[in-house]
Each structure stands twice: as structure tokens, then as C-alpha cells.
């Protein structure tokens, strides 16, 4: 029996969208898990860094008619913001997990309200900076999305190189394993904290900037991303970089497949159920050590 071409097309689309989305979310979720793995901080404002990335990309287009400038601005701005935030408001409550959550909720409110006051409350769209569609396998696919996948993939590789091939990465990984010994070996753990928080915020903003032309830019858009990132880090194992990356692909592809036959909300409910199952079978995540 011949398979209907439209179904094949839909499946190919779901795979493509799933991969693109997985790479974007992986950027955000890796930032989250990196910050947690090092500092034990559940960063509620992480979704808002993502939102800031998208909003600044929008400003890049609106003010300078240049998306790329906006994306770079977003990364620089959030990296600085991340460093300042770590130093000023997270440092005083370091080591008190509940309080770090409260502080980042407070920060989240301040960022959201600042964006609401300047950017406004209605959703905006960012035009795709590459207006090309590529035809293959009987479908038309926006070239920008493939480009996003490429950039995110490169960013992930760069992150890998940074973490595993440079002294900075070595310091971060050493501090993640044991702060006191790392400190005794002469690593400035305080600077490592600032660097990591800033790096995490920047990754999240990059994800947001890249996603801006694909989704709508809205001051509460970070919440949804925060939810999916949390599901991913729980499934992958909190603090596990490899687990986070794999879980990002599993969940993103799955949600895109399910959306073929159900609503996005139902897809999310299924992700939630999978998370529940993982928690029952392997409480510390699929790839915990």
C-alpha cells in the first residue's frame, strides 16, 4: 500500500522542526544545568534571559534594521547582566538553595516588568533575516531554520571545546566536582562562579535571539521555555551536560511528533508523564552518574 506523501512530508517536517527546536532548547537547558551543577542554583530567571535575547533581537531589527547586531547585543548584554546579578544579589545568599530561588524569582519579576514597561505587553514578530525557502524531499523549508540549527550546533560545539579543551573549562569542571579542593589548587572559584553564571545567561539569550523569528516575542515567553528546559534537565539528570543534550533531543522530537496528532498542550502533558515515569524509575535522571 503506498503511503500518502502528505504524511511523509509532515513527518519530515516534524523531524526538522524537532531538531531545530532541540538545538535551541539545548542551549538554554545547558546554561541552566551548568549553573545548577556548579552553584546549586535553580535559576528561575533563566527563561527571562531567553526572553531578553529575543527582545533585544527585535530591537536590533527595529532600531538598526539588523537582526545580527541585535543578537550580538543580546549576548553581550545578558553576559554582563549575568555577571552583575551573580555578584550583587546571588552571592549574599549562596549556599542557601531556597533563597537563591527567591532571589531569582525577584529578578525574574524585575526583568519582566522592565521589558513590559519598555517593549510593551503585546506579542511582536521578528521577520526572518534569511528569507529563502529550500525545497527538498517534496517539502519547502525556511532556510533560516536550517541556519539556526547550524548556529546552535556550532555554539554547542564551541561550548564543548570551551569546557573540555581550555583552562577556563577545566576550572569550571574542577569547581563542579569539588569547590574546596579546586580552591586549594589555586583556582579562583569566585571568578569561576561569575563566569559560569554569565556564560549560562548568554547561552540562554542566544537561544532566545535565534528563536525570535520563529516564535512570537512576548514578555512572558520565557515561562514556557523554562518549563520545557526544566523537564529536560530532570529527565537528563540535573547537572549532567550529556544527559541534558540527549534529553533535549528526545523531548523536542517527541513533542513535535505528538503535535502531528494532538495539541501542543497534550504533547506537553505527555512530556510531563514521561518525566514522572523517569522520576519513578531513575529518580536522579536517565544519565546521572
Amino acid at each position: 500500500m503506498p503511503i500518502e506523501p502528505t504524511i511523509v512530508n509532515k513527518i519530515i517536517l516534524a523531524i526538522l522542526n524537532g531538531v531545530v527546536w532541540a538545538l535551541i532548547i539545548a542551549l538554554v537547558a545547558l546554561g541552566l544545568t551548568l549553573i545548577f551543577g556548579l552553584m546549586d542554583i535553580v535559576n528561575i530567571a533563566h527563561g527571562d534571559f531567553y526572553m531578553l535575547g529575543a527582545v533585544l533581537a527585535w530591537y536590533g531589527v527595529a532600531l538598526f534594521n539588523n537582526f545580527w547586531l541585535g543578537a550580538v547585543m543580546a549576548m553581550i548584554f545578558t553576559a554582563i547582566l549575568g555577571a552583575v546579578v551573580e555578584r550583587s544579589i546571588i552571592r549574599p545568599v549562596e549556599g542557601l538553595p531556597a533563597f537563591t530561588v527567591v532571589v531569582t524569582i525577584g529578578l525574574s519579576y524585575i526583568i519582566q516588568q522592565s521589558v513590559l514597561a519598555t517593549f510593551g505587553g503585546s506579542p511582536q514578530t521578528v521577520p526572518e533575516p534569511i528569507r529563502l525557502t529550500i525545497e527538498f524531499l517534496g517539502i519547502r523549508y525556511p532556510a533560516y531554520r536550517l541556519f539556526v540549527a547550524g548556529v546552535s550546533g556550532l555554539a554547542l560545539i564551541a561550548l564543548g571545546v570551551f569546557l573540555f579543551k581550555t583552562p577556563y573549562g577545566l576550572w569550571i569542571r574542577a569547581s563542579m566536582q569539588d569547590k574546596e579542593i579546586a580552591s586549594a589548587m589555586g583556582i579562583n572559584v569566585s571568578n569561576v562562579y561569575i563566569m559560569t553564571f554569565s556564560l549560562g545567561a548568554m547561552l540562554s539569550a542566544l537561544g532566545g535571539a535565534l528563536a525570535a523569528p520563529i516564535t512570537q516575542v512576548f514578555y512572558l515567553m520565557g515561562l514556557d521555555v523554562l518549563a520545557i528546559s526544566f523537564i529536560i534537565v530532570i529527565i537528563g539528570g540535573l547537572g549532567s551536560l550529556k544527559g541534558t543534550l540527549i534529553a533535549a533531543f528526545i523531548i523536542s522530537l517527541l513533542e513535535n511528533f505528538i503535535t502531528l496528532v494532538a495539541t501542543p498542550t497534550e504533547a506537553r502533558v505527555i512530556s510531563l508523564l514521561i518525566m514522572g515515569a523517569v522520576l519513578l524509575i531513575r529518580p536522579k535522571g536517565l544519565f546521572s552518574t
Binding site: F36, A227, V233, I234, L238, V269, L272
Partner: peptide, 19 residues
């Protein structure tokens, strides 16, 4: 699980129920 897991799981429940 407690600790950070507890915080994250309760957030996920909340955001999903809202959706």
C-alpha cells in the same frame, strides 16, 4: 527527591497545569 528537584518539579507541575 527534595532539594532542587523538589523546587523544579513543583514549577513544572504548576506551569503544565496552567497550560
Amino acid at each position: 527527591l527534595g532539594g532542587a528537584y523538589f523546587v523544579i518539579i513543583t514549577i513544572i507541575f504548576n506551569l503544565t497545569f496552567y497550560l
